[in-house]
Amino acid sequence: MSEQNIDASWPLYEVFVRSSRGLSHVHAGSLHAPDDTMALRNARDLYTRRNEGTSVWVVPADCISSSDPDSKGGFFESSKGKAFRHATYYTKSEGVKHL
């Protein structure tokens, strides 16, 4: 029974891997570990067995705040209907080079 509690107390970490220099870290998955050091080592063993990474971040899952999927419409509303933020909105320059 006591060992169960120990397992349960290992926090969840989210793992981010940079696949090569110049690229962003990308979410690879998650794992449980007793502390940050072990989380990093476990992440290396679990997510970079085939040279998938040159750098790894581990973040306690508790520390991540995220948007609410149910309020999707509202939260991202302000970028909708603003086609003028895209280059394709401006069509008069068609046929003119380097523009």
């Binding site: 120990i6 290992w10 007793p34 072990m38």
Partner: peptide, 12 residues
């Protein structure tokens, strides 16, 4: 493996 998990938790 229980002792390994216990030791890791105690160390943390």
């Amino acid at each position: 493996g229980a002792w390994v998990r216990e030791a890791a938790a105690a160390y943390a």
